[in-house]
Nucleic acid binder design. Structure first.
Lengths: 157, 157
DNA sequence: CAACAATAGTTGTTTAAACAGTAAACAGCC
DNA sequence: GGCTGTTTACTGTTTAAACAACTATTGTTG
């Protein structure tokens, strides 16, 4: 099992355990997300559009407003507009204006969108299960706990 | 300390520990890298250009070929060309053709590039130290070890 | 040594992210 | 009820990532 130092081709060891942990987090995220990106791509989606579709499926028939989608995706509203543009153009979602507040745009998933997600559910689950199958449940729980702690630092702006 | 489930606003718990770990890895990478991105931005750099400059500084006066830079950055060669374009335009790096192989382009860092990096060294180190300062060294080492293991799965293509 | 393949890098084009600025609808106030 | 400010979403523009196609040089081989 290669260390990160070897992978990166660095001669000297890391300056600190925190720096090593940080770089390991970034690298692992990149490595593990790549197969998912391929999967999304083969379904004509990106990670962003996939996540948006998931939000819309969870929202059901009533749909979600653009700013709600943006909040959940941690994306800006202008980006949501174009993201929904793409979904709508692909027939996976549709917009409709609210009666009560005519500024608001309610976005909901279409049957085609549900079908597209349904096609992905099993492969995604399989990938999740296979990707970390070599780790024990207690290791995974420890990992999650440490990661939650890692990002809960006092804001250092 | 909020759980990821609460942060995402999800009602049901995760389907599996591996899925939870995966999402925690992505989320933590995103949260922890944001302050660095701001730092780079304030110096007129991106994460990519910063990493490229680091590679060039480590390479010293002899510099590096484009494909070497690409391999270390895990980037494609066409992207390296434009990345070096930006560095050169900003006066932070320079190109020169090899005498021995006139196809090869050797890229090296300039004095301005070294100065730019030097300005960032201390803030970067401070951020690394402060960001995970609330975790013990043994926690960080455990985290790193688990992350290395997480991404060393048998290829699942 | 001519022809073909391989290598190093660049250019073109499409796509998406980022963010400022704008338009329309609503809310509160005098 | 009109004016100001706020909210909701859209549009414009810049910038970068992804990837195919291309040029120039070098290596190989019959």
């Amino acid at each position: 099992m290669p260390t990160l130092a070897q992978e990166i081709g660095k001669q000297r060891p890391f300056e600190s355990p925190s720096q090593e942990a940080y770089l390991n987090i970034l690298r692992t995220a990149s490595v593990l997300s790549a197969p998912f990106a391929h999967l999304f791509d083969s379904a004509g989606l990106s990670e962003a559009t996939y996540n948006a579709l998931r939000i819309l499926r969870a929202a059901g028939a009533q749909g979600r407003l653009c700013n709600e989608i943006g909040a959940q995706l941690v994306a800006r509203v202008p980006d949501v507009t174009r993201l929904v543009d793409r979904l709508e153009k692909a027939g996976l979602a549709r917009r409709r204006r609210e009666g009560s507040d005519r500024r608001a745009v309610r976005v909901s998933i279409t049957a085609a969108g549900l079908a597209r997600l349904a096609d992905l559910d099993q492969p995604i689950t399989d990938l999740h299960n296979s990707q970390l199958a070599h780790m024990s449940e207690s290791q995974l729980n420890t990992l999650s706990k440490l990661l939650v702690k890692a990002r809960s630092a006092p804001a250092a702006h």
